[in-house]
Design a protein around this nucleic acid. Sequence first.
DNA 1: TTACAATTGTGAAATGTTACACTAATGAGG
DNA 2: CCTCATTAGTGTAACATTTCACAATTGTAA
Lengths: 210, 210
Amino acid sequence: MGNEIPDIVIGRLPVYLRALTYIAQEGEKTNTSSHELGRRLGISSAQIRKDLSHFGEFGKQGTGYHVQYLIEQLRQILHLDVEWRVVVIGAGFLGHALAHYNGFQHRGFDIQWIFDNNSEIVGREMNGLVVQHIDELEDTIWEEKIQVAILAVPAEAAQGLTDLIVKAGIRAILNYAPINLTVPDGVQVMHSDPVIQMQRMTYYLVPPKR
Amino acid sequence: MGNEIPDIVIGRLPVYLRALTYIAQEGEKTNTSSHELGRRLGISSAQIRKDLSHFGEFGKQGTGYHVQYLIEQLRQILHLDVEWRVVVIGAGFLGHALAHYNGFQHRGFDIQWIFDNNSEIVGREMNGLVVQHIDELEDTIWEEKIQVAILAVPAEAAQGLTDLIVKAGIRAILNYAPINLTVPDGVQVMHSDPVIQMQRMTYYLVPPKR
DNA sequence: TTACAATTGTGAAATGTTACACTAATGAGG
DNA sequence: CCTCATTAGTGTAACATTTCACAATTGTAA
């Protein structure tokens, strides 16, 4: 008991949650099984059962899992039963896209601020948000007790801003800058560099002849 | 001999490559070591050496790795010695951001086409590219022998388009739609749903009291 | 009421990954 | 030439993750 739950298990839970949400939306079934989930996700049913078993017994032999109940349980486990307020840092093309993406809503996140250092962009309106000057970033995080940030700035600026926002209280960073960030223990970072992901795929491809 | 190289090893190579590129740009050293790389990336030096040893002997005892040489070797391993031509599917806010991102250049990728089904967007110019109608997608992939695609469309459209582009010859897909794609064997897919990444982090955070 | 198909949760086995610890090579400095 | 600090590559041990396989439970249908 009291074992650490592997990171890799945590990483799959949001995927399960997303798949369950689709099943719920389809509205055809109130129940599902590890086999169905596994088939949809390309994961073995045993792994899904094992993963869930770290947190409790959510299913029923013979009938499987009640979709809505499992969704609620997963949301609790992942701390998504409250809505996390998020700052976006950088209002260039990517920040602009993030501000306009409505997929955060209903999945646990609410983008409430967007910042940039470019005075031509500051003050502009993006999907209901007004771009703030980056000088106000530190105070905003501090005063509003924001814990989650999305970094959408050039690589050169990323580490400096990271140090600043961590000092101000940020505890989770989704980083789009193509650079490896260094953060203190206890601060979560996820990296999202599209080129890294594409380079990972080309290894398996046969290069074009030209 | 002839062993399969683990996916997880392949996944780290692009990260090594990116770090080496920064070291090369800094221009202060022509050589580096597994220890330095590890320190920068938060990875153990033993792991870096082990990973590289799958592909050959690139270093020299006592002196480490020649940065430029290792960069070239990694680019070859990852099939980045030719430039991959890429189609972006979806010219909404995200597609727009991708079209304007110049970070693909010099890292092995060249976005040459962008498609959308919205006639109000088709014909618009984005960073030198003209948005094409999605009806031309299949023929373009086929005729130009494109193997890499970035999907930036709503979830509802993603699987249908995936089936279409795979049939047309696409072999690697970077998917931004918040849905799990099903593809035939031999087709690579990487998923990039920001919400999944954020949900993974909130598990480790203490939720705000409100 | 009984038989049966479906399904979970889980120990144990199998497989995969990382870390350790050591040998051998290298170059710098005396 | 010798010594020493540095470092790669690697076999093996330690650790982590996945898969297997099965008992137990459930609901359905005869």
